[in-house]
Nucleic acid binder design. Structure first.
Lengths: 155, 155
DNA sequence: GGTGAAAGGATAAAATG
DNA sequence: CATTTTATCCTTTCACC
């Protein structure tokens, strides 16, 4: 992991579909050198994947909420996390310090769906209570913060 | 936006580097048909970009926190959001309902850095108080939840 | 909308410095 | 480690349906 690797990672974070030839031009290496480096970054687990980013509103997921999950006394964290993972509406799940066991990010189409999802969350064994914060607007999300990045916008 | 588009989106969410030929095989179209559809999805703003996903711990960002931003009485939300965007440690920023104006996700290397970042956050004009929740572990993050997905893993 | 063909480019896997 | 090379595959455009 040298400066070149970090440059390549930064480039792939802003444009995950950049070709190896492009990356090579950006960092001053041949395409095959970049290819080999990226392969190593992937197999060493530094790069875990590549995702298209979609505007949630345009795919029918206009409602986002952050939900704190309060555990019951008998809760098994791993079981709760596994149950949370089974709900497709739960996009992210963080185990946290504090009264809550987890904070999850939920994306659904409507507030009705949100209500249904919250009912499902509260029915999970080990969940005592939920504390929901509705997201009014996403100002920015998932910015690459590691190295130098001029713009938060992608592609 | 038909079922084919949704399939293509799902495929690109799980593997943002899938080739058009790959996508074509997955959805039963020719590569050029997929190419045209993806182009339209991009220019219509449905697909906003492609990002490599990196293991934060392996790039020196082992500490994650969720920070609620309490506004002062005179706060201008847009100015606060702009100031938050200027801090590279702030990866995501959500305007929320409730006492807090924003919830942000912060990623830093150490708890020392977290403390420094919190000081900077509280110094922002319009920020009265912060409420920090330290993330102990990320169980999963950024899963594609839209359509059918067998595995949350990418690539 | 889709297909298929063809030129130009990119990838992947060698051998080499 | 990077480069160059090579065969193979992919991208991109275009004529056509």
């Amino acid at each position: 992991m040298d400066a070149l690797d970090r440059q390549i990672i930064a480039a792939l974070r802003t444009n995950g579909r950049a070709t190896y030839a492009d990356l090579g031009r950006q960092v001053g290496l041949s395409a095959s050198a970049v290819h080999e480096r990226v392969g190593k970054l992937e197999s060493s687990g530094v790069i875990t994947g590549y995702h298209a980013v979609v505007d949630p509103r345009l795919v029918g997921l206009g409602v986002t909420a952050l939900v704190g999950i309060h555990p019951s006394d008998t809760a098994d964290d791993d079981e709760v996390a596994a149950a949370l993972a089974r709900l497709p509406e739960v996009e992210s799940c963080y185990a946290v310090a504090g009264d809550e066991a987890f904070v999850v990010k939920v994306r659904v189409a409507t507030v009705d769906d949100l209500e249904r999802t919250l009912v499902r969350l509260r029915r999970i064994d080990g969940v005592a209570r939920t504390n929901t914060t509705v997201v009014l607007s996403t100002r920015f999300e998932g910015r690459p913060n590691s190295p130098e990045e001029p713009a938060p916008r992608a592609e």
